[in-house]
Write a protein that binds this DNA or RNA. Structure first.
Lengths: 144, 144
DNA sequence: GTATCTGCAAACGGTTTGCAAGGGG
DNA sequence: CCCCTTGCAAACCGTTTGCAGATAC
């Protein structure tokens, strides 16, 4: 097993992209956590360790990582864009109270998606399954 | 069965909102078609018949209609917001070539979503299921 | 030396907001 | 007469772009 940096560097290199320090630290920020940061979040976190990285580099890198299927893009509670390392089909539970996003792997979902192609002839490249509602913690908490 | 205008007017009235001509024509545009227009599309279409309606009224009305569960919001191929009349849980097939969005009612999907609450204790209020890929028509067509 | 990549700042586009005028009950 | 609603324009904010300098091979 490669360490995370080497794996990222390899994927970049295999696709003709350079493994620059900026790209590596952006990629690490997204890949080594399982939260759902916004581009701004990533920018701020990366900047703390490496104050020279610019916001456009963050965006460039995210676009690149998405094209290489290293990160997946989804939607936050405020319908802003969020990024995550889980690139397998899964459900995002988006709590509209606390803003937390939770991943759920539901096998039925994969079955349903698999049937799609047979039914419709649609060639799936990616999916974004967001379920909005109230998480159990917020439901228990006294109304805001 | 009420005619569409009366139904919209009733829902608005029942919730303490006035059934203004502007709201009605925006609502009709979305509810009486089964496409997935953007706010701009709606604005342009509505303006053709009623040139006095402003863009902010379109946005206000769309926000209102969404709160009243008369319209559903989803994402277009360019990750812009789109609106649709189908408020039941369904899959949107978003073709990244031609931009077309097709609705699919897949019963398995509803099963999977129903299981969510049992597993996670998450109270679902809405969902957005977008599958990106290439539709059968574009797949057959010679590569752009 | 050349192509790639970065950082900055400005531009961009969709959405929201502030506010004064309009209109219905 | 009051409150809701509208239309306009400006503000807003996340994202993209243009470009000149830096960097790697």
């Amino acid at each position: 097993m490669l360490d995370p940096d080497e794996r990222i560097a390899k994927v970049l290199g295999d696709n003709g992209y350079k493994a620059t320090p900026q790209r590596l630290c952006v990629a690490r920020r997204v890949l080594e956590a399982n939260d759902h940061p916004s581009a701004q979040n990533i920018y701020e976190d990366v900047r703390r360790a490496n104050p020279t990285v610019s916001l456009s580099t963050v965006y460039n890198t995210l676009t690149l990582l998405r094209r290489l299927n290293l990160v997946h893009e989804t939607l936050g509670p405020d319908s802003g864009r969020r990024f995550e390392s889980n690139t397998r089909p899964h459900i995002n539970l988006v709590c509209t109270r606390c803003g937390e996003i939770q991943d759920v792997d539901e096998p039925l979902m994969e079955d349903a998606l698999a049937r799609l192609q047979a039914i419709t002839g649609f060639t799936r490249t990616d999916q974004c399954i967001d379920v909005h509602g109230v998480c159990s913690r917020c439901a228990r908490a006294p109304n805001r």
